[in-house]
């Protein structure tokens, strides 16, 4: 069972009394604005949660795993997530092993 946008909107409706349409739009826009910042090359820092950083990767040789054919993997920019101290500490305490 995973947390989804629908779950998050439902909680905003329950906790803050936003109407369901507003809550749904706000959740959508929350993730969209993070994407916009990242696509414009801006790091996103959400204190208490973590940072979305951007890293540039050079072109490197790769292979088509099906055919074994060599094809270069083009230079690209990738998003990495670094969790903050607070989130790390909370997650470390999780003892289960479902994942």
């Amino acid at each position: 069972m995973a947390l989804t946008k629908a779950d998050m909107a439902e909680r905003l409706f329950e906790e803050l009394g936003l109407n369901k349409r507003e809550a749904k739009e706000l959740v959508e826009l929350f993730f969209e604005e993070i994407r916009v910042a990242l696509e414009n090359g801006r790091q996103v820092k959400l204190s208490g949660f973590g940072n979305f950083d951007l890293r540039e990767k050079n072109e490197r040789p790769g292979r088509n795993p099906k055919t074994g054919e060599e094809i270069p993997i083009s230079a690209r920019r990738v998003v990495t997530f670094r969790s903050g101290q607070k989130l790390k500490a909370r997650v470390e305490a999780y003892a289960g092993s479902e994942q």
Binding site: M1, A2, L3, T4, K5, D7, M8, R11, L12, E15, L16, L18, A23, L26, V27, F30, F31, I34, R35, L46, G48, F49, V79, F81, K86, L87, R90, V91, A93, Y94, G96, E98, Q99
Partner: peptide, 30 residues
């Protein structure tokens, strides 16, 4: 309050061993 609630919901999910799946954005897991 909404932004803080969203981040808390996400932190809580991970702290209790739940995944987070946001289509078109990404997924968080442990």
């Amino acid at each position: 309050l909404a932004v803080k609630s969203l981040l808390e919901q996400m932190s809580w999910a991970l702290a209790t061993g739940q995944r987070i799946e946001i289509r078109g954005f990404g997924s968080f897991s442990l």
